[in-house]
């Protein structure tokens, strides 16, 4: 389970949710306990645990329990470095093409339906 290779699909799915993105952002600043992660979120502890499970399944986050405290941290090597760059390039293209669409809409000649 620990060393399972995370799939990009699971990662995208994990990050498609604003709560989970907030959790990842928080962990980007350093490790945190589950209760620290839950504090700014307006939801029950079981709901937070469910989000955490998805993040762990995606390989982006791992957690370990010491005594009664579960500490979560981001897994910076979840994606191979090459995958990161290639994926970043793909995302860069997607953003460019989205902006191209906005530009085309804004400059559409008047008088056409």
């Amino acid at each position: 389970m620990l060393n399972q290779s995370p799939s990009l699909d699971l990662m995208f799915q994990a990050l498609a949710d604003p709560t989970r993105r907030a959790m990842v952002e928080r962990l980007g600043q350093g490790p945190a306990s589950v209760s620290e992660l839950a504090r700014p979120l307006a939801m029950s502890m079981p709901a937070v645990m469910q989000h955490l499970q998805m993040l762990e399944a995606s390989g982006l986050v791992r957690s370990e329990k010491t005594g009664r405290v579960r500490t979560c941290r981001i897994e910076p090597e979840a994606l191979s470095l090459a995958e990161q760059w290639i994926n970043a390039r793909r995302i860069d293209w997607q953003r460019k093409l989205d902006r191209l669409g906005d530009y085309l809409d804004q400059t559409e000649p008047k008088g056409k339906s």
Partner: peptide
């Protein structure tokens, strides 16, 4: 590497 990860996550979040 760390820069790359942060950058990826930021871009991923923005694009989503």
């Amino acid at each position: 590497r760390e820069h790359g990860t942060g950058w990826l996550l930021e871009k991923l979040g923005n694009s989503l």
